[in-house]
Design a binder for these strands. Structure first.
Lengths: 347, 347
DNA sequence: TTGTATGCGTTATCAA
DNA sequence: TTGATAACGCATACAA
């Protein structure tokens, strides 16, 4: 069923059907009704491919996600869902491209075959060849995260450095002297993944500022790694009284390791960090943390992209989110029996 | 940059460029090289939209996922990731459509605007209007799950009825007399979600077959609901010694409720069910369960769809998966102090 | 071995 | 108020 067939059945020309549909030129009421009847009866809808070819735009956006190998985190998943939803609301379709490396067939199709009007790029690294590729192709795009030289691109990101800094200050205020940062995986760090590096910076800045003993460790994105990581930390640093983390998937493991070590949160040990709400609320006791507004971010990213597609030449906009830290129950004052000087007296 | 521009620069006709690219007709080595040089230099790739219009196929498949409101389960997430990966391997793009209800704009676009060559439909309900819609549109599709009258469609599903039956028999063999099924959410049950209903059937069949006292409860898809659900179960049925479940997201909550009640798995209480591997392995102790091969399913679904797109008129194929139940450490014999007769003697 | 011409289904310009 | 027609970029049948 195509526009020609509708036109034939309604006894008009194809252009009249097109105009009746688009409303871009007046159509006599009688004619309009005849056409509408035929359309209702046949369930006709204009072919998206032909329309895209003619109009020069696809009404589709690309979403570049990390490949399946690396399991998506809760936060990333929420983000994908919210992007798809926001796009649907704007009558845009979403084409998925799993691509991490640089020479990825799916990504290349996306940027050079004109399948999409714009791209949302997830899990950007500090140095990211895909950014250059998109700029070179003059394809509008929005990054979730930003590269090291971030001025020339449009992005939306979370201020991991600032937030981690904030959580460390909070711990310092509570009297903690030796704290750890449980970072993302060694692989992501090696790949130059922004949040992991910026969390590290924020941690270093805050521990220096407050004169704390800080120890930073990478940790796989799963419960098991979290557990091993914390067991190792407790072994290596008996005077450790608090951790902060951006690794939400490690939280259940952190919890277990603390349980197994007989440490009760927050009386014996404090935990805080940056995490998507479900992870924070599932922690026991509920985690004092900056709640990553993943659902919100998808929405904002789509808006930003839609705007950029409409007006490509405006200077790139940046949105740096610093959600407030929700004070829940997982942080507390260092208990006297674990204070450094008390530990010292033991020996 | 389009094929005409390449032709002009290489000093040949457009068809020669096209044939040089497709190899569907011999091209003189010299000519071919001239063309290739121009292409390499310009980074030209044929426009996917124009090609789709001409060829009558889009090289894109649609993936209909549950809308963002309902958070995807781990299993569904793995499934999405594996579909996208399998599609990428077959040089197919994936268009996402979040749609649960019947009158969904995004879904309608998918089926009636010719944007995709075929569709993978997730979270099918026993009565599902989308199935009829796809059949009517003569669009090849594969269901993840199946409707009540499932013969006329192509699907791949997990044998929840058989697997739950199997787990209940296992519990019966261990001596358990009162067991519970922790099902999916009340909303999904009300919506006629197949796995929930089939799990119920399998549970009913197995408890009847072995003469067990079975109690079935719906439960939200999250840790909190799992905890509340099990607390309520333990309160209402003090003689309960085992649960089986298809609600993987509830497992952490089930664990917590048992911990809080001072019940040690598997000595005081047995837990089993059907779950994606990460959930089963994160349980403490590791869960005896049927491991849902979500990654495999995505792969199979794509193959099935590709085949169906190529040969649409073959009788629909069905794949019913019954993964083996991996015996881990979460089930054990009923301890004597919790046997029904002992409980009876107390009074 | 290569070039010309047609059509895929639309939208939009021009003409009536 | 409407119709004929060109053009979007490509693949391919037909011609040379």
């Amino acid at each position: 069923m195509n526009i020609g067939e509708i036109a034939r059945r309604a006894g008009v020309s194809r252009s009249t059907v097109s105009y009746a549909l688009s409303g871009k030129r007046p159509v006599a009421p009688g004619t309009r009704k005849r056409i509408q009847d035929v359309i209702d009866e046949s369930g006709y809808r204009p072919n998206a491919t032909a329309r895209a070819l003619k109009e020069g735009r696809t009404r589709t956006i690309g979403l570049v996600i990390p490949p399946a190998g690396n399991r998506l985190t809760h936060m990333q998943l929420d983000f994908v869902a919210s992007v798809v939803d926001a796009a649907a609301r704007a009558d845009l379709d979403v084409l998925l491209s799993p691509s991490g490396g640089d020479h990825d067939r799916s990504f290349e199709r996306l940027v050079s075959e004109g399948r999409v009007d714009g791209v949302i790029l997830m899990e950007i690294r500090l140095e990211d060849a895909r950014v250059g590729r998109l700029q070179e192709a003059r394809l509008p795009f929005v990054g979730i995260g930003r590269t090291a030289g971030d001025e020339q691109m449009c992005w939306i990101d979370i201020d991991y450095a600032g937030l981690i800094q904030h959580t460390v200050r909070h711990l310092a205020d509570l009297g903690h002297r030796r704290v750890a940062l449980v970072n993302r995986s060694p692989e992501l760090l090696a790949a130059g993944y922004g949040p992991a590096h910026r969390a590290r910076e924020g941690f270093a800045a805050a521990t220096a500022e407050r004169g704390l003993d800080g120890v930073e460790v990478p940790c796989g994105d799963d419960a098991r790694s979290g557990q091993e990581c914390l067991e190792e930390l407790l072994r290596a640093h008996p005077d450790l009284t608090a951790v902060t983390t951006i690794n939400e998937a490690a939280l259940p493991g952190i919890q277990r390791a603390l349980d197994d070590a007989g440490l009760t949160v927050p009386y014996d040990f404090s935990v805080t960090g940056v995490a998507a709400l479900p992870w924070a609320e599932d922690f026991r006791p509920p985690l004092t943390a900056a709640d990553v507004p993943a659902l919100d971010m998808g929405d904002k990213a789509v808006s930003l992209l839609v705007e950029r597609i409409a007006v490509p030449l405006t200077p790139p906009r940046h949105i740096l989110l610093a959600p407030p830290i929700s004070l829940r129950s997982s942080t507390g004052a260092v208990p006297s029996h674990r204070l450094p000087d008390v530990v010292g007296r033991r020996g």
